[in-house]
């Protein structure tokens, strides 16, 4: 176990570079082998690569040409060096952040579905609790972190709870919306067959709210991520947020930027995972009439 962990901690940037290079090569191969008609479409897949690489190149040139100090804005090459130097720490802390985010997100999904179903099924609860929920949602969660620290101390729990609190709202709203917007005619068809409220929920409401639910996941995961990093920054000994807090205390600007890059990579990874899940689970909604309306 330790050997594997050690290998991963040392080697993850290399693995990432190899994977990206393989991906780029694969797309290039597809473009080269395709016919003239497909080429235009496939070239579009190269656009993100070109633009990303171009942005970093400009950044590099900008820093070098004006010889900006790494203390103000490190060039991508400096960041890469720092990333490599601190790869073990960054890897470890990223792993921790990912854990906190996923745990908080998982709680948010469970709680969000339960509350969303309740709201969708009962107008009383919807009307009664909605204002309270909106109020809760508008409170900046940074302000809640100190309270969590008083309750639970510094550690992993505040991070998980912050991630949870910040991310469950969109799930609740989307699940409830899916249930509350059943077409009245479909409901009439069901009622005239003698369907109970429960049957209408399970046969129409829940399947119908799935696209809304999966759509909300990509918003929720991003929010959960923000929540866990905020909490780590303020109240943890682990996580990228904490690493950044320490880097900024040491004025280690390249490390700060390297942490930011790691955050971006991790965030994109988690976002893509939920988008993939969404496409897999609700393929029907992408083609049917309700995707448009």
């Amino acid at each position: 176990m330790d050997a594997i962990a050690d290998f991963l901690l040392n080697g993850w940037p290399v693995a990432l570079v190899i994977a990206s290079a393989a991906y780029v090569a694969w797309i290039f191969a597809k473009v080269l082998m395709s016919g003239a008609t497909d080429r235009a479409k496939l070239s579009l897949q190269l656009a993100p690569l070109i633009c990303t690489a171009g942005t970093f190149l400009l950044w590099e040139l900008f820093c070098k040409a004006l010889s900006i100090s790494t203390f103000v804005l490190p060039a991508p090459s400096d960041i890469a060096i720092s990333l490599w130097q601190f790869r073990r720490q960054i890897g470890l802390h990223s792993f921790h952040t990912a854990w906190m985010t996923i745990a908080g997100f998982g709680l948010a999904v469970a709680f969000g579905i339960a509350l969303g179903l309740l709201f969708g099924a009962s107008r009383f609860f919807y009307a009664g609790f909605y204002p309270l929920l909106v109020g809760f949602n508008t409170v900046p969660k940074v302000a809640v972190v100190p309270i969590l620290v008083i309750w639970f101390g510094v550690g992993w729990l505040p991070a998980v709870l912050t991630a949870f609190m910040i991310s469950f709202f969109p799930i609740v709203v989307n699940v409830a919306t899916g249930l509350a917007t059943i077409e009245p005619e479909t409901e009439d068809v069901m009622k005239a067959l003698g369907a109970t409220k429960f049957q209408i929920m399970t046969k129409i409401g829940i399947p119908r709210s799935l696209p809304y639910f999966f759509g909300s996941l990509k918003v929720a995961i991003t929010l959960a991520y923000i929540g866990s990093v905020i909490a780590e920054y303020n109240a943890s000994r682990f996580g990228i947020g904490n690493l950044m807090a320490r880097a900024s205390a040491d004025f280690n600007v390249p490390l700060l930027f390297a942490s930011l890059i790691a955050l971006a990579i991790l965030g994109v990874g988690m976002y893509m995972a939920t988008v993939w899940l969404e496409n897999r689970m609700t393929g029907w909604a992408q083609r049917s009439s309700f995707a448009a309306g």
Partner: peptide, 12 residues
């Protein structure tokens, strides 16, 4: 049994 102007079939 009921049928309306919109077919109201379930898309999933």
């Amino acid at each position: 049994g009921m049928a309306f102007q919109a077919p109201t079939l379930l898309p999933w």
